[in-house]
Amino acid sequence: MRTFTKLKMAYSYCNSLFFLLSIFLASSTFALGGNFYEDFDNLFGDVRVDIQELGQSMTLTMDQYSGSGIVSKNEYLFGRFDMQIKLVPGNSAGTVTAFYLSSQGNNHDEIDIEFLGNLSGDPYLLSTNVYADGVGGREMQYYLWFDPTEDFHTYSIDWNPDRIIILVDNIPIRVMKNRKTIGVPFPTKQPMRLYTTLWNGDSWATRWGAVKLDLSNAPFVAGFKNFNANACIAKNGGANCKTFNNGKYRGLDEESKTKMQNILSKWVVYDYCRDLRRYAHGLPFECRKDNLLLDQSE
């Protein structure tokens, strides 16, 4: 009789825990993991968005009629977002494959990773940019140190109130610190959706628009898999995300700093902080040498 009573109490206890866990998960404001079926809506391109493997992988296609893309159902305010991507092979000149966060409106925030297509044999360009309160123009572009069309590689955006880190295969290639104290806009207030797109950008994407899209190579196809978000789903304007501390800034460890310095010394193609033609009357304030050194040392 005592054994039956203990089993009954244990069963009741387990049911209570399961019930509480179900309530917690239902009301959770944190995203863990990811699924293309469950977490995204079709943005454009109709059947050119092809989700496979029960939502674990996807291809985007661009043909002579349209590109394609998806957008997250949720808005996020801070978190880390990872996507494995295999880029359009062959002559991809004029194509733009993008993985980015963006809010809406004229004064929008945005964090960009864009891959600018190439002529066969030329390297892909990885272009990054950050908008805050509608102010952009902070491009940094890199050649990749591998062929991104041969296999999948992981590209990541890690964003919190203190800094943004862009990573390739978990190697940081760019760190942008919050410099609002010196008047530099930084995205901290506007929830953003996550976008993944493939589209025609031949007005600017390849050799500044000199090389156009060759539709005889269509369809152009890019592959995506293993999307992961460890992020805060914004509710009530994101008020619930103020205490979210995923990826809390502790600075890069020494190994990560060394890897990033290697990337910066060998693979940077364009850095807005070095564009003296664009900023003939003086570089942006955050491009001062002391501020750049501070970004890399913290």
Rank of each mutant, 00 (worst) to 15 (best):
K180D: 06
E114K: 09
N217K: 14
M140L: 15
L20Q: 15
I164N: 00
A231F: 03
S27L: 15
S156T: 15
M192A: 05
G45W: 00
F244T: 02
K212G: 05
S256N: 09
K189S: 14
S57L: 10
A210K: 07
N170M: 11
R288S: 12
I233T: 05
Q56K: 11
G136F: 05
L144D: 08
L7K: 10
Y249S: 12
E139W: 07
D158C: 12
E286V: 10
L60Q: 05
K189N: 15
F146N: 09
Q141G: 11
N160M: 06
G251C: 01
S72G: 02
D63I: 07
D214H: 11
T196I: 07
F40P: 02
F36Q: 09
L283F: 12
V47H: 05
Y37C: 00
Q56E: 13
Y11A: 12
A239T: 14
N118M: 09
L292Y: 04
P148T: 12
P284M: 00
N246H: 14
K212L: 14
E298T: 10
D41H: 14
Y270K: 04
K6M: 10
Q56I: 09
P219M: 09
H281P: 02
M192Y: 07
D158M: 02
P89D: 02
N217T: 01
W199Q: 06
F40E: 02
D202T: 12
E114D: 13
S297W: 06
K8Q: 09
W159D: 00
F244D: 04
F285Y: 15
V130E: 04
M62V: 09
I113N: 09
G247M: 00
L276D: 06
K73V: 13
G183H: 06
F227P: 03
E286N: 05
L144E: 05
L17A: 08
G251I: 00
N217F: 08
A26N: 10
F99Q: 02
L43I: 08
F99H: 03
E38Q: 05
Q56W: 04
P219Y: 03
L25Y: 13
Q56N: 12
E114L: 11
V211L: 11
L25F: 14
E114P: 01
D133C: 13
N129I: 14
W199F: 04
A210I: 05
P219A: 07
G223R: 04
V211C: 07
R277H: 11
P148L: 14
N236G: 08
D39G: 10
I171N: 01
A93F: 01
I182V: 13
D162E: 13
E150Q: 15
N170I: 03
M9Q: 13
Q141S: 15
N42M: 01
V211N: 08
A31Q: 12
L20C: 08
D46F: 10
G33N: 01
M58D: 03
F4Q: 11
G251L: 00
D151C: 03
A210D: 11
R278S: 13
I171A: 10
T206K: 09
L116Y: 11
I23Y: 10
K259H: 10
M62A: 14
G209A: 01
P123C: 05
Y143C: 04
F224H: 06
C287V: 03
D39T: 10
S27M: 13
V49P: 03
K225A: 02
N107Q: 08
F99R: 00
Y272T: 06
L293K: 14
R288E: 13
P191Q: 12
